[in-house]
């Protein structure tokens, strides 16, 4: 699938690049479409290129030996998927990624991306900015997983994903929520029931409705 300059412009890292730089990258880039749930990258495999989400979304996760999944990050259109790879000592992927919804990704060969970053200072700075944001994300995630209780994590998840706008809300299964929180479905189910009993939330068929936002916010600090 050919890659247009417009495709490249959708990548946040490339937003500030001069048209000539973009035009130089375009012939090296390739794009690929994925259906919802398709595997993009497998943990332990060598990544052939650095990947960027053009459309849709990608979920990066790791699987424990017992088969439990921990979602590490959810990436959206414009985000880089494996930005450290071209600069890492090994191209082996430390985590897996799957498409969330029908998605399209752009790939650039590792060497070509490294070269571009060494030649274009604006790109090098943008890469550092992106890596710094990612470092911050993983610092927060480490704190969440090691120091916050499941109740706290679930409370924060509900607050963060509650949408006031009804038209096209995202639906989450308890299994998906568990993968986000680093726990199992049964614990999510039990904690939701506890929140209902305590009057923090209400279940209205397929809706989880937050009733006591302040109490849930207090809970999310635990």
């Amino acid at each position: 699938m050919t890659v247009t300059l417009d495709d490249l412009r959708r990548v946040k890292l490339f937003a500030g690049l001069a048209p000539a730089s973009l035009a130089a990258l375009a012939p090296l880039a390739s794009a690929r479409s994925y259906r919802d749930g398709d595997s993009i990258l497998l943990e332990g495999e060598e990544a052939a290129g650095v990947l960027f989400v053009l459309e849709g979304a990608a979920r990066v996760y790791r699987t424990s030996p017992e088969g439990r999944e921990q979602t590490l990050i959810l990436l959206h259109a414009g985000d880089a998927l494996n930005l450290p790879t071209p600069f890492a000592p090994s191209p082996v992927a430390p985590a897996s990624a799957v498409a969330v919804g029908d998605s399209r990704l752009l790939a650039l060969p590792l060497a070509a991306f490294r070269r571009a970053a060494s030649e274009i200072p604006d790109l090098a700075l943008a890469v550092m900015g992106d890596l710094a944001a990612r470092l911050r994300h993983f610092t927060r995630l480490t704190y969440d997983l090691s120091l916050r209780s499941v109740r706290g994590r679930l409370a924060r998840f509900l607050l963060r994903h509650a949408s006031a706008d009804a038209p096209s809300p995202v639906r989450w299964t308890q299994e998906e929520v568990a993968a986000q929180l680093g726990t199992v479905r049964e614990v999510v189910s039990r904690t939701l029931r506890a929140f209902v009993r305590e009057g923090l939330i209400r279940l209205d068929r397929q809706r989880i409705l937050i009733l006591d936002r302040e109490a849930l916010e207090r809970e999310s600090e635990s």
Partner: peptide
């Protein structure tokens, strides 16, 4: 009734209920 008992008792996770998250009145 969207009670979730099918999901809870399925040994393979083959039947699932999905939820929207929002704000509501008691």
């Amino acid at each position: 009734a969207y009670c979730g008992l099918c999901e809870e008792n399925c040994p393979t996770g083959a039947i699932e209920l999905a939820y929207e998250i929002g704000f509501g009145a008691a």
